[in-house]
Amino acid sequence: MSQLDPDGPTARRSPLDAIAAGDDVAGRKEAVRRAVRRARSAAPEARRLAADGARAARALALVDELLAPGSVIACYLSTAEEPGTLGLVESLRAGGHRVLAPVLGGLPDGRPRHDVAWAWYEGPEALAPGLWSIPDPTGEALPARALAQADLVLVPALGVGLDGSRVGAGGGWYDRALRHVRPGTPCWALVNDDEVADRMPREPHDRPVDGIITSTRAVATPGP
């Protein structure tokens, strides 16, 4: 049986619908970011952990449905207030999949890293605090084109629209990274239920996502 939401991409009213509406695209994006960060920081830890577990279960079910054993999955490594992925990537690895994770920290000589890079996730013991305390894999850094190996990409977001529109953190890292994804490779966003709206403000460089995973549903979108 399909793991996708049987109701399809039907809107469930979100507080972000009103915030995301309007003509000032840059201003609306910032308003979405502020609202979501404020809500995430106020969420009780127990609620966050419960949502993380349910969302990971839905993501794993989707992986089982879409991918063959031993596939490559690119996935972000979460901070404390983001939709959690640290348990998810460990489950993926334990299930025989290979996981590519972003490398966001500095270069070996101490200079900051501005390019897109990836590394293989090799377990929680092979992580170190990176930029903004985001976990960084400590293995060999791979170039941006390594993303072409991925059969599925799981991306972070601060808000996602049911039309596939996505608001990220604002640094443009995934806009640059996703240029290297193989054509046809699905890209899904992991968010909380109240971070899904009808649509998000979108600029020409924004790459839409193909689906949304929350703790209660997995919804395919129209995609790019």
Rank of each mutant, 00 (worst) to 15 (best):
E81Q: 09
A56K: 06
S91E: 13
T85G: 01
P44T: 11
A74P: 14
A51N: 03
P44R: 01
A35R: 00
R37P: 04
E82K: 03
L66W: 12
E30M: 09
L60P: 09
K29Y: 02
D64H: 11
A57H: 08
R28S: 08
E90C: 07
L49P: 12
G27T: 09
T85Y: 10
A80V: 05
D64K: 12
A51E: 05
D52Q: 10
T79A: 04
V63I: 07
C75R: 13
L77Q: 09
A59I: 09
A51I: 00
L62D: 10
G87E: 06
L88I: 02
A56S: 15
E81K: 07
S91C: 07
A26Y: 02
A50H: 13
C75Q: 09
D52F: 11
A56M: 04
P83F: 03
A26L: 13
G27V: 04
R38M: 09
R47A: 13
A39P: 08
L49C: 09
S71K: 06
L60T: 12
L86F: 05
A42C: 14
E45Y: 02
A56Q: 09
E45T: 15
E82S: 08
L92G: 00
K29G: 00
A43E: 01
R37N: 04
A50F: 12
C75G: 11
A57I: 14
V89P: 11
A43V: 03
E81Y: 07
L60F: 01
A43L: 08
A35F: 02
L86M: 06
Y76I: 08
R28C: 10
L77E: 09
G84R: 06
A68I: 15
P83C: 14
A51C: 07
A35G: 01
L86S: 04
G53L: 10
L86H: 08
A35V: 02
V72E: 01
A26P: 01
A43Q: 06
D52K: 06
L88G: 01
V32A: 00
V63H: 10
A61P: 14
A68M: 15
R33N: 10
A54L: 13
G53C: 12
C75L: 14
A61T: 11
R58L: 15
A50L: 08
R58I: 07
A35P: 02
R33W: 09
R34P: 02
R34D: 00
R58E: 11
L88V: 05
R47F: 10
A51F: 02
S71T: 14
G27C: 04
L60I: 13
A42N: 12
V89T: 08
